[in-house]
Simulated scan of single mutants.
Amino acid sequence: MNRQLWLIAVISFIVISVALALPPLSQPLDYHEFADQRSFMGIPNFNDVVSNLAFLFSGGAGVMLLLRINQRPSQKTFQQLQECIPYGLLFLGVIATTFGSSYYHWMPSNDRLMWDRLPIAICIVALLSATLVDRVNIRIGLWLLPSLVVLAIVSVLYWHWTELQGAGNLNLYIVTQFYSILLMLWISFRFPSRYTHGSFIYSIIILYGLAKVAETLDREIFTLTHYWISGHTLKHLIAAYAAYRIVYVLNKRSIETRKLR
């Protein structure tokens, strides 16, 4: 296992170094031109703004579940209660996405987009930490969590700072997001979960991919549904459902005694 962890560390260092060395990739200005710009009840971009309430529901359900688990003397969701820390940060990040994304979609701009991306980046690295805790090693997963959160925050702030300098660079943010997803997938292939329902991580990654596809096909989906729902609104709903799937699995899972290490 130590050899594989060192391999992950070396590859991660190389990937981040390459991201910083590559030519800067700036934020396209037309990114903010979403398909559904309809207003309702005085709320601009109504569907893209209000659909963020789904994150509040999913994140709130997750926080409430963790509070209930911590009050159960005989809980079976976590082998050690400290394992809930990455999930707690994840669900708080999902709640924060409600406000950050709503703030951005109310009046889309690069300055506001920073507040949308910050909680999303934190959610992704929190899930990576939780995956390490569940499958690799509790101590390592928790030990890496602060560093991963710092990396997520820096990746967004660095992009925003470079935009202010007139030469935006998304490379580090893109790597932080997509490499984390690939790393979760690789870890899940290589290390069995210590809990039942461990394969749920694959459905989360699939939902993440579907959300990205919906975002890319924003206008096409809006036209296909006869202007009922846009791809970006659908992205919010899919991503919020992915977060709720985590809540659902945590509520059902238990320690897989045959895989205890």
Rank of each mutant, 00 (worst) to 15 (best):
Q4Y: 13
W6K: 13
L7K: 10
V10L: 14
I14E: 02
V15P: 02
I16H: 07
L22T: 11
P23Y: 09
L29A: 15
D36Y: 08
Q37P: 10
G42K: 09
G42P: 00
I43A: 09
I43C: 05
V49G: 01
V50R: 11
S51D: 01
L53K: 09
A54L: 09
F55L: 01
L56F: 14
A61K: 05
L65G: 08
L65R: 05
R68K: 15
S74T: 13
Q82I: 15
Q82L: 12
G88Q: 14
F91N: 03
G93W: 02
V94P: 07
A96R: 03
T97H: 08
T98E: 05
G100Q: 06
Y103E: 05
R112W: 12
M114Y: 10
M114H: 08
C123K: 05
I124T: 05
V133N: 04
D134C: 06
R135K: 06
R135E: 03
N137I: 07
R139H: 12
I140F: 13
P146G: 02
V149G: 07
V150T: 01
L157S: 02
W159L: 06
H160E: 11
H160N: 12
N171S: 07
I174T: 09
V175N: 04
V175H: 09
T176Q: 11
Y179E: 01
I187C: 01
S188V: 03
P192C: 06
S203G: 00
I204S: 11
K212V: 00
A214G: 03
E215C: 00
T216P: 00
L217P: 09
L217A: 12
R219M: 11
R219Y: 11
E220H: 12
E220K: 09
E220N: 11
F222N: 07
F222Y: 15
T225R: 03
K235G: 02
K235N: 05
H236W: 01
A239Y: 04
A240S: 11
A242W: 02
R245I: 11
I246T: 10
N251T: 15
S254Y: 08
T257K: 14
